[in-house]
Design a protein around this nucleic acid. Sequence first.
DNA 1: TTAATTATTTTACGCGCGTAAAGTTATATC
DNA 2: GATATAACTTTACGCGCGTAAAATAATTAA
Lengths: 343, 343
Amino acid sequence: MTNTKIKNMEDFAAISGLSRPTVSKYFHDPSSVRPTTRARIEAALEQYNYRPNIFAMNQNRKLTKNVGIVVPYLADPFFAEIVRVIERRCVEAGLSPFLFNSQGEPGYEIDILDTLRSLKPAGVLLAPLGRQSDKRAIESFCKDVPTVLFDSNLEDLGEAFVGSDNRSFVSQTVEYLTRTGEPPCFFEMKTPANPNANKRRLAYIEMMDRLGFEPHIVPIKGSGWAFEEIGRQGALKALIEGAFASNTVLCSNDRLAIGLLSACYKMGVKVGRNDDCALRVASHDDHPFSRFTCPSLTTAAHDYSAVSDEVVATLFKLIESGGRLDSRTEQLFPARLIMRDSA
Amino acid sequence: MTNTKIKNMEDFAAISGLSRPTVSKYFHDPSSVRPTTRARIEAALEQYNYRPNIFAMNQNRKLTKNVGIVVPYLADPFFAEIVRVIERRCVEAGLSPFLFNSQGEPGYEIDILDTLRSLKPAGVLLAPLGRQSDKRAIESFCKDVPTVLFDSNLEDLGEAFVGSDNRSFVSQTVEYLTRTGEPPCFFEMKTPANPNANKRRLAYIEMMDRLGFEPHIVPIKGSGWAFEEIGRQGALKALIEGAFASNTVLCSNDRLAIGLLSACYKMGVKVGRNDDCALRVASHDDHPFSRFTCPSLTTAAHDYSAVSDEVVATLFKLIESGGRLDSRTEQLFPARLIMRDSA
DNA sequence: TTAATTATTTTACGCGCGTAAAGTTATATC
DNA sequence: GATATAACTTTACGCGCGTAAAATAATTAA
């Protein structure tokens, strides 16, 4: 490394004895220049370690390599995990992912979308807040920027939706639980912000009806994203008041279940499927920590890998089609039941 | 909202009847223009909802409002939580945080630093990978971009370091455990990537020595960031082989402890401080989930809020000082012992 | 009202790069 | 070695904005 200061592409072109447009062409596609030219550039690259300014590049480009990834709450390991996989796929495909966290607040979500307009991304992967999202703002954004929704569906917004089939989740857990023991009651937040939660409740009721059982919902109070604490408090209350109508509890999601399990442990309620257990607990999501709960959590797992792959594949298709798709597709992935020790 | 298309500041200045530089000045500081002018701009703003392109703004600015936040592994809730707080503080201060995840890979970390150069951030908050980091690359980056290190210290790199005082963490847990029962053995990964882990081991040995007890280290194998699984496998092995030299185990961090607790539950080893318990377990970090483990985890807590505040405050000081500080400060925060049920 | 003090406009250039068109050189084909 | 075909260079403009200097207009002080 020589310490001549290379400030921009002009400088770099000069020291490699080429014109700037040629160098620019190289960075756009290294194979588009003559091999000897390419070798010269790459030799200079080794010496000076120059990299073009990605934002200046995007300023006057028809199609950038940027992609925006927006999630509602990154401190939720579910999103952290799915984002991790998506980011890798994007980098492998030569795209530059930019990650944004709405932090559960509609105001942030809108600000993020504004920032994303400036980024001029080739496409955006958006997991919206859900009920709290400003649909008008998102609709306007989707008109300007090719967007794939994931996790939470907002009707007719974005070019496509990729998510999980909540009915598949619930039908598998309910089927399993009813087949192997008492029909479950359903443990959930009273007013969930996430549309998936509503779909799960409806699926539970429908499934119980179909199987000829009486659905029992145990709604607990609380709002925000501290689901474990909400689940714990709600479960303590429910256990004390005897609100569980069955010895089997199906939680809307794993984070609530984690709180519930912690409450059970505290109260000395043994959870599991053995005879000496007082309660069976199952749930949905296969949260990264659900294998480490005590007991380990029986749950319906997202196919993280398939969802991530499809999200990214849809994004690529969208980009290749010039930002618009013929029709809005909704791709839903079924769950895989993971039997562990809690039910 | 009128649907005249406002594409840039030129357009916006035109419809508000002002010149572009005046509008530019307004966005730089709204109070720097005459009140009547300000009112005109803000009225137009309501109608057309224009926002300047943040990246074009930064292109020719001496000092941008961008800050970069880099963490080694975002799927670790510890980082997710600290990032959440830091991001909020930045937004409140009118800065635009950009979040990057090294994903445990040195190559990513370097790529991120390159992207960050393009972003021209006013400052960067960097939690490096640690031992695996390319120190030369980071050193070179820190020369160009004002950087505050946090979480993991790399000697002499960056303008400042903000982190936790590992000795305070370990001394409090060791002191508590020895005072209330058997002296603990120390459960950790054999070759931890994070420098904090090494400091904790040394602090454990020193503390045990000082108190006149024999230190016992239980090193487990494994690499990567799946600490819970590593802890679980290591603990299963240790339990079967009787490798715990004491009925008290102090884990290097909560994620290992979560794995250990899950192994104990599996093996029917009751954990807690009551007489009917076979093992006491304590740890360090106060991981967001440690209050929901079974039993809840006794741990030395980071002062998340204080660390985040100091990280951001140091960043602000650094920015105000023009990107350099007189001397490199290392600010370490003590732990707060949180007594829960596991020990 | 006039002078002094702001605020604003005009002008002009820069940031670091993309990109298109026209002209020039190097490589491949015969 | 002449010609066709790439590859390359030059030139010139654009992206959306910052910013500095000089000229003009509006406000305030006198």
